[in-house]
Amino acid sequence: MSTLESTAPSRATNRNQRLWMYATMVQSRHFEALVKVAYLEGKQPLFNMAKGPIPGEMHLSDGQEPCAVGVCAHLRPGDAVTATHRPHHIAIAKGVDLKAMAAEIFGKKAGLSGGRGGHMHLFDPAVNFACSGIVAQGLGPAVGSALAAKLRDASDIAVAFLGEGAANQGAFHEALNLAAVWQAPVVFVIEDNAYGISVAKRDCTAVESNAIRAAGYGMPGVHVPGNDADRILAAAGEAVARARAGGGPTLIEIETTRLEGHFMGDAEGYRPAGEVEALKARDPIPAYRARLLAEGFEAEALDRAAGAAIAEVDAAFVFARRADYPAPEEVFEHVFAGEGASQ
């Protein structure tokens, strides 16, 4: 099979879908904005990762929203998604409960996992979403979820999101081969934000586009340039339809942008001067809004949808901040299934 350059027109026809994509991108960006505010509380003037209401590493998704909405627009709650250490935009687009997700990030009892997981370990079985903290970790599980759906004769599929750095992991190559051998209904979505922490893609990847690697595993590989939600929507639509119809796996690589550091506090000295400013000038959300307006969407409709999305995030953060912490003793619960305290 050949590598396809996605040339789908940027005139998707489904008005509601595109309105949802816009509002969801706005929602994700607003979620990250509130995370940023909370994360920096207690960390100024001296930045110490252990301090404040949200400690630990924080990997923000600003700039990568088109990948999440373009793919998840095609997904149903029964479809499984595995995401990365940079998961918020995907979780939001997959429909993860915003209040419980925010509460988890604040380490509260009402969080998705009662505070045990944190921002890199969000699990919401209601919408079949999970993410994890080690590169390429979610690919094998996505193949497994996809096989389970196939064995159940369900039309559910699985999507594994990964970064471009993960395409150099053994797990990537093994999972693609396995998915193809099993004809598992899975879509592998590479969010190519050009950097694995400090190391540029061009300095560590033997090919320019990972999409061509699909050829080695007998599956279609699609390259989507431009960080464009509509083109991603089109490419993902074909891949998801193929998977649901029993046509097996697809690899999609999306050129996207990381507008923030690898994590908050990253000095980003490895970026060329002016790069971040240039990327921010191409921010995909205002660009998408401009396109929708140019195509006849009314500003009022866009504002109404975005406003509602933002209000949900605001409510989620009010909820998360007010929520109680778990009792420390709860730390011993859930080490094994079917048990409470394990000590």
């Binding site: 252990a50 400690p55 630990g56 988890e104 380490g107 509260k108 969080g111 009662g114 505070g115 045990r116 997981g117 944190g118 921002h119 370990h121 912490y325 778990p326 009792a327 420390p328 003793e329 709860e330 730390v331 011993f332 080490v335 394990s342 000590q343």
Partner: peptide, 16 residues
């Protein structure tokens, strides 16, 4: 450290 995975939330982590 007890025989449990490391939890995220500081109220649990520092407890153990």
């Amino acid at each position: 450290y007890p025989d449990i995975p490391v939890p995220f939330t500081p109220v649990m982590e520092h407890f153990v």
